[in-house]
């Protein structure tokens, strides 16, 4: 849990919750575009997109955290994150704002039992009126995570 430090975080929405990632890990934010699905990839991998000549994998964060998938709308965005394996596009419901969190506004999350979602939470950020769930980007988008949940070609397998 070395990631708990004050700083600027980009906040975005999933369901009705606020999430945050360190701004230093964010490369850019794009509107949702056409995503090319790729066989034999984990379910949460939406496919690949072209970002100015580079091919990036796109992860649906809802599915990654074990939530149900929703139809994209005008607010759906792809946040391009700098992970260890390279740039990864992350589909989120909507992007909110950049917030400044002081060290005393950040807290280790209490154990709440939900394994899938909890695994990638590094901390909770507290603001007057809301709680921001801070994601451990390196852990969530590590190469290991992709390989571990590698998809198969056949439904029965």
């Amino acid at each position: 849990m070395s990631k708990i430090e004050g700083g600027r975080y980009l906040t975005f929405m999933l369901r009705d919750e606020y999430y945050g990632v360190p701004i230093s890990k964010v490369r850019e934010i794009n509107q949702i575009t056409e995503i090319t699905p790729v066989p034999k990839t984990p379910q949460f991998v939406e496919g690949v997109v072209n970002l100015r000549g580079k091919i990036l994998p796109v992860v649906n964060l809802r599915q990654k955290l074990g939530f149900e998938k929703v139809v994209y709308n005008r607010e759906t965005c792809i946040i391009v994150i700098e992970a260890e394996m390279g740039h990864v596009g992350v589909v989120v419901d909507a992007v909110r704002e950049v917030v400044d969190l002081k060290e005393d506004q950040i807290e280790v999350p209490p154990n709440m039992g939900d394994e899938t979602a909890m695994k990638f939470l590094s901390a909770l950020g507290k603001q007057e009126d809301r709680v921001i769930i801070l994601l451990d980007v390196d852990l969530a988008f590590s190469e290991d995570e992709f390989t571990k949940s590698m998809g198969s070609f056949s439904k029965s397998a």
Partner: peptide
């Protein structure tokens, strides 16, 4: 371009 999705997919040489 290499197809980068975290692990190799041999059926595709790239994207």
């Amino acid at each position: 371009k290499p197809l980068q999705v975290g692990h190799p997919v041999p059926e595709f040489s790239g994207a």
